[in-house]
Amino acid sequence: MMPAGVKRVLPQLITLAVLVALVSAVFPDFLQLHYSDGRLIGPVIDVLKRGAPVALLAIGMTLVVATGGIDLSVGTVMAITGAVAAAAIVAGHGLLWALGLALAAGLCAGLFSGCLIAFLGIQPIVATLILMISGRGIAQLITEGRILTFNLPAFSFLGSGHLLGIPVPVWLWLAAATLTVVVVRRTALGLLIEAVGINRRASALTGINARVILLAVYMISGLCAALAGIVTTADIRGADANNAGLWLELDAILATVIGGNSLLGGRFSIPAAVIGALIIQTINTGILLAGFPTEYNLVIKAALVVAILVLQSPLLAGDLKRVAARLTRLRHPAPATKKERASP
């Protein structure tokens, strides 16, 4: 039998495999890898690396979604943290200050949304929408609308460096995902988050402090967004407050849902959400490699997303099971009749 962990992500893995086959059909060299200058090179590595921001965002988003919330501000928080890091570097502070300030900015952003939601009772989609709109203004205020370019190889390493032949951003999202899974599953935090998501009032009655849990998940989401912002900023060696993370919150939510997490809250899987992010990036990279005219990009993406959603939908899975059961019954009539006799 399969271990439960693998079984949970099986639909996402199958989807990813089908998608890779599909992309390989239009771009035969998709799976080709080679090793040169001490690093692995190939389209698959590009997917892993370019998928880093959405994968990082999806980690935090999964926890937020598990509480029944949603975080529209993550793209903007990426822009803020990138701007903070770049401004710190340009002002002459070192790598540690830049990283520390950026992560602190992400935590503050999460704290702000979390307070609006947990203490003022504002609905998550609206509370984070407010930060989504005004946060980009704050980021632009820091950069004054320019692209803040800097030159600090140690910082750029986080975006475009390699470690053991693999791009650093890949290590970052792997580490962040592993760490979060360990923390969430080895402590009671995961259960508490699920409890809040399933029924906030009931969880309060059992003594769970839902407000603290809500604050925690939005701050984790802010922290993940800060990491994503750092990766993006380090990658282009500049903070582009106008465009960094623009509309990425939608991709992150999509990744979470493709990962089989319910937007209504409750049980969640971070690995599945991260694979969801890779699925989205495979679509994006596949479109770029295929060489179709640009005006088809969105339609292709929409069609693939709809197909994935339909195939993964829980109700359809039920339908398929029923169809499969009927087929088995047709093929093996004997046990089926027994069942039929028993059922009424």
Binding site: L254, L263, V305, V306
Partner: peptide, 11 residues
């Protein structure tokens, strides 16, 4: 399909 409106309408 029992899919959330957020995602269906996003597509």
């Amino acid at each position: 399909l029992g899919m959330p409106p957020f995602i269906v309408t996003l597509a």
